[in-house]
Amino acid sequence: MTNGFFEWFGELGIFSWNVLKAGLTPPYEWRELVRQLDEVGSRSLPLVAAAGAAIGVVISMEARYSLTRFGAKSMFPTTLVYSVIQVMGPIMTGLIVSGRVGAGIGAELASMKVTEQIDAVEASAINPYRLLAATRILACILMLPLLTLAADASGLLMGWFAQAMVEPLSFHQFIASGFKGAKLSDFLPPTFKTAVYGLIIGLIACFQGMRTRGGAEGVGRAATNSVVLASLFVILADVVLVKFILVVFP
């Protein structure tokens, strides 16, 4: 058990080193990168936006209830803005992309592995770490912050909408009071920390996919493991990153 644990980390370390080495040296695989950006972005956007909307509505309803109880109703816009952008938007996007893209990449690379397509790439004198892994991981790193912004936007819009249904509040007014006194450093770090989630999701899914063995069963296992491990590490990373951001941007 512990042996397997250390072995896994050891292999992950070697894998990361191979990807880094290959990804940083030419030839750069621009076409594949663009394809993966589109794949990661368009696959997850609708899901992330929908989940963001739902979270926005839930926070809006909860905030209205508790703030009214404590007589702090005027704090509603600020509460919604901070909860969505600092907390819920990033972690929710990380978890949804872990599920959607983690499973997608894990299953795709695993099926390429067991049908010898990754060997075929290598036999064609192409470095699979460069063509297949580096591009997917970079696409995840670049796309996560953008998807987070989409989730945030959709959450704020629907959160405001849910509030405006109950009592009149113009969107302009909501935004103006929600962001009053806010600094860029309140919002940029929580948004850009999701690039780390992207790294985790891409790296784990590629690693699990490319080390797969054992036919169709192995493919299923790789997809499941990618999702489970990526989600787990995203949550663990969140703990570390939140602490880190609080220390660096007090």
């Binding site: 049908t115 010898e116 060997d119 075929a120 290598e122 036999a123 004198a125």
Partner: peptide, 17 residues
Amino acid sequence: EIRKKMGFLFQHAALYD
């Protein structure tokens, strides 16, 4: 560099699906 001079046919073809 060496593999560029080699052509390989896999037993199960291994075409990119």
